[in-house]
Design a protein around this nucleic acid. Structure first.
Lengths: 217, 217, 217, 217
DNA sequence: CATGAATGAGTCTTCATTCAT
DNA sequence: AATGAATGAAGACTCATTCAT
């Protein structure tokens, strides 16, 4: 199965950057601390200590504390998100999703796993969005392009075959995300319950989505 | 129509408290500032200035900065949420919701309006949940009680009449909230677009929910 | 003889301000430290310690380190300079300066004493002028007004009586200041020699000025 | 006319030193930055960047930041000042200054031009003197030697011929410098006004000095 | 010689909190 | 109850200096 793990991809991006080992460590450690206790509640001295570097080193490269956050978020937005998207879309095609149900089963389960595995990164993103919603305005363009582009093609197939209601792509995706979120949200932001059954959850989600998105005869 | 406005109810709660006018002002102003710029980014001196009181006064009553947040959140959780819930449930009964569609139309539109009107308070809550998920664990008990209690009765009617799938109440509510959230989330947390059409949005939401939640013959 | 001491006047201004004793102490101590070791080489913690207050107190009132400097310089420019000027001019009139020589003797000696007694304040000013010459542009207006105003009247008397060359006031004052400075400068900015004889110095200065400024028959 | 420009001479001194091109660049750039923004407000990284060298290089040669200042000031004191003095004295002799007026005209105008052309260097010196007056104690010996030596010879001629008052050389030079300074100071340290007329200024200065320094019959 | 990443002490500044009035 | 001056610990950030390469 695909890696699909932001942390792995993030580390890869780090390795390919021209940052020194210490500076990479700063970003790695910051990501974890920001996710755990929030940006504002994480001090730069805490970061330095956790990364095993001096406080000067932190600022030498990243200039400001906000610079650290930017150094984390920017490559994720610029590289990780597209990589993940591409990977996901490739899988969609590879897996030869013959009908809507297969497609939904795959997509829902895949994204659910993704969300749970990348809780940390998602939380950092969520915090930043609450603080500065502009960040998502920048992303929404990309998302819309993908939805109407490659994802749109896939959806169109199902529409053509009469398997999917003829609603705008954004509307269909909205419901997909909404239903997915209704399962994922508590796991990511609230207490991640140990008894969360991703299989059962995705089956249920697929069931209600199939009902909601199949054309009425 | 009902007031349904947390701010109004919050003010009412304040009036009924034994807090002096100045102390009420502190809470009122804090709520706004916390929503606008976040708890960590709001200083107590800023609060004091905005509330027109001295810094000493802020602490005289609330002991700590966290105490202010608690003084805001606690009554909302203790009084405002129940009041809103009761009000909502009363309306459900009063409006004589003869069938599932009427029920969904009413519920969705009502909650959508509620969310948009109370953006500020919701944002403060969201921040606090990210920081301290425990707060929702406390709430979830109450919510589950309501869902399985009064709301459960309503849902049961529809199930009995064969208008609603025979799924657990929590599952049904999950989808309701998920679909609702897919419309409301961008308005509350991202850019609140001026062209948001609550009527159209709730009609669409009802449409997909009716499909998803109606039993198959 | 007149007080003529900026420090005394500065303290008087402080007392009349609405600053607390501690805050006055901050300014007093800062003035001394800035004069001794320069603005940039004086740390705020040093100021706090010397003033016997916490570092927070320093910033509570003066906001920034520059704010401290401003709080020192502004009242001097606004009040002390005018007070000193008035005092000086009053003395000029009171002492019934019958001829140019008496006038020069008085003025030179008086200003020389003034400069030597207020070395500290003058040094702080000098530093600030090197850093930010704008400060003197603001003052030059006032100075010119006095030179052409009250001082001008005095000079005009001597011109009318044929005791003083008919040059523009600014030119005459320029030489007065230049010659005065040639004696004062080393005392203020270089090593203040113990054997400095203000009496002899002013006699010499008066001698050369009398020669330079008396009309040729 | 003579070069009379400290920068040119400074560069020449640099070329004749055993410093590498990069290290010379460090001194050159430091001089400018110190003059513009002061020693304390110029960081070593700023110097390194402006000089196009690494931070390590700056310290390799000069050990400390003070070492840079020393490396700038020392050669000026050791070589440039003497060179300028010699040049000046040579000119005095070459120009065959027949009488006191010619001498004053030449000297005043020459030094005035010198001061205005070397504003930067003078400002660095002035700053350093404010900070560490000892530097001038070292210089004063040299100055006194020159004043009583070669300059003394020139002055003696005029005294012998009855063109110049029989005052100690230092006293005469004091007035020369004082009057000169009264014109030059504002140009160097305050706003350098575009309309400064060096010709007119030196004529005026000569006029008052001739009056002040000519023996009374 | 030259580099530049790394250091850590020190700087200015903020802020929640206390307390005498 | 209310004030606001005072506190001091902690925060972000700077900078002269070192050292392995």
């Amino acid at each position: 199965m695909q890696v699909n793990n932001v942390e792995t991809l993030f580390k890869k991006t780090l390795r390919e950057s021209d940052l020194s080992a210490k500076q990479q460590s700063v970003l790695q450690v910051s990501l974890n601390l920001f996710a755990e206790q929030g940006f504002d509640r994480t001090s730069t001295s805490e970061i330095a200590k956790a990364a095993g570097v001096s406080e000067g080193t932190v600022f030498k490269q990243f200039k400001t504390k906000d610079g650290i956050l930017k150094a984390i978020l920017d490559p994720i937005v610029a590289h990780v998100v597209p990589m993940v998207a591409t990977e996901f879309l490739d899988e969609l095609k590879t897996n030869n999703l013959v009908d809507l149900k297969s497609f939904l089963q795959y997509a829902i389960q895949d994204r659910m796993t993704f969300a749970v595995e990348n809780r940390q990164q998602i939380k950092v993103f969520a915090q930043e969005i609450l603080r500065n919603p502009k960040i998502i305005t920048d992303l929404s363009g990309k998302v819309e392009a993908v939805v109407n582009g490659q994802v749109g093609e896939v959806l169109q197939q199902f529409k053509d075959r009469g398997e999917l209601v003829d609603w705008p792509n954004m509307r269909i995706i909205r419901y997909l995300v909404g239903i997915l979120g209704s399962y994922v949200f508590p796991q990511v932001f609230l207490a991640p319950t140990a008894d969360f059954d991703a299989d059962k959850a995705s089956q249920e989600a697929v069931e209600v989505l199939m009902r909601g998105l199949t054309p009425v005869k």
